[in-house]
């Protein structure tokens, strides 16, 4: 078939500067400006001094560029009695995110593997509960979890929050891994079993090495999701272990003192920087991750 149609296929190529194209790109350009505006405003505001902000307009570029707001946001901004800036929240977030991501992915990957290739009676029922549970508003479950964490003795600690992230990351991650492992050819699995490999052997030596892309998707999903979390951070940690988002909100929305908008915007940008960098580096994989994780809301 393909050989018969050597000639050009599809619609006639249009002129690049047709009226349709000018309109199309014009509209896309205007919408892009709207979407980029807040990012632009954050950047220019964070580079201005306060006198310039009071006089000028928020869209104008800084006349005199200063990095003082960034320094202040990072190292000196106050929340309550602590005046060591957002750096404290940053390191807290790192300490929360790294173990949460590792633990949640490890648990969900093994779980998804068991659900797809080593089904046991009742497994599907628990999985169904897990997926339905993803739709339950967190507010319904937060207080019982407070009690459980208090009983185990990790309420208010980083590990309590890590556990919470592992629990609430489980539905979507398990779904992700289960679907992926289900698409693995069964012959491969059977051949490995004939060769004497067991549950963990097949997982570690065959499944994990061949499913790196899905691990990357899960990684992107979890790092951005956990980094951006606010609700769990504010409930399950104490002021000195608050993650970055909580601390940011406390810095910007504190009622005491003079509002320093440039410091606030520098702090906001700093907090948004981690997920933004991940987003711009990961590109298409991020899209895949959110398409899978969208259910998480």
């Amino acid at each position: 078939m393909a050989d018969l149609t050597k000639g050009p296929r599809g619609a006639k190529p249009r002129k690049i500067l047709s009226r349709r194209n000018i309109m199309l790109y014009g509209i896309l350009f205007v919408i892009s400006v709207y979407y980029l505006l807040p990012l632009y405003v954050m950047v220019v505001t964070s580079l201005k001094g306060m006198p310039e902000i009071r006089l000028g307009n928020i869209f104008s570029p800084p006349v005199e560029i200063t990095f003082q707001p960034w320094v202040k946001a990072w190292a000196q901004a106050c929340t309550g009695l602590n005046c060591d800036g957002l750096s404290r929240g940053f390191w807290n977030s790192v300490q929360i995110t790294v173990p949460s991501v590792i633990l949640s992915i490890a648990v969900a990957a093994v779980n998804g593997y068991a659900l797809s290739l080593w089904k046991f009676r009742g497994a599907e029922t628990f999985f169904a509960i897990l997926i339905v549970g993803a739709f339950i508003p967190y507010q319904v479950m937060i207080y019982p979890i407070v009690i459980i964490l208090r009983e185990i003795g990790i309420y208010g600690t980083l590990w309590g929050l890590v556990l919470v992230h592992t629990i609430f990351g489980m539905p979507i991650l398990t779904l992700l891994f289960r679907n992926y492992f289900s698409s693995v050819p069964e012959e491969l699995f059977k051949a490995a079993r004939v060769d004497g490999a067991g549950f963990w052997g097949i997982f570690l030596r065959i499944m994990v090495p061949m499913s790196l892309p899905i691990f990357v998707v899960a990684l992107i999903l979890q790092v951005t999701g956990i980094w951006n979390d606010f609700l769990f951070g504010v409930i399950y940690t104490r002021p000195d272990t608050y993650p970055m988002t909580v601390q940011l909100n406390n810095i910007v929305n504190s009622v005491q003192g003079v509002k320093e908008y440039n410091v606030n915007m520098a702090a906001t940008l700093l907090t948004g920087l981690v997920p933004l960098i991940i987003y711009f580096i990961s590109g298409k994989l991020f899209v895949r991750g959110i398409a899978a994780g969208a259910v998480k809301g």
């Binding site: 954050m42 940011l248 991940i278």
Partner: peptide, 28 residues
């Protein structure tokens, strides 16, 4: 274009809320 339209989704609601609080600030 897709990258531009989607990047806000990578940001947290906290960051989103604070930026728009600033843009909608009547004084500035």
């Amino acid at each position: 274009f897709r990258t531009i339209f989607l990047y806000p989704f990578a940001l947290s609601f906290i960051v989103t809320g604070l930026v728009w609080q600033w843009i909608l600030n009547p004084e500035f």
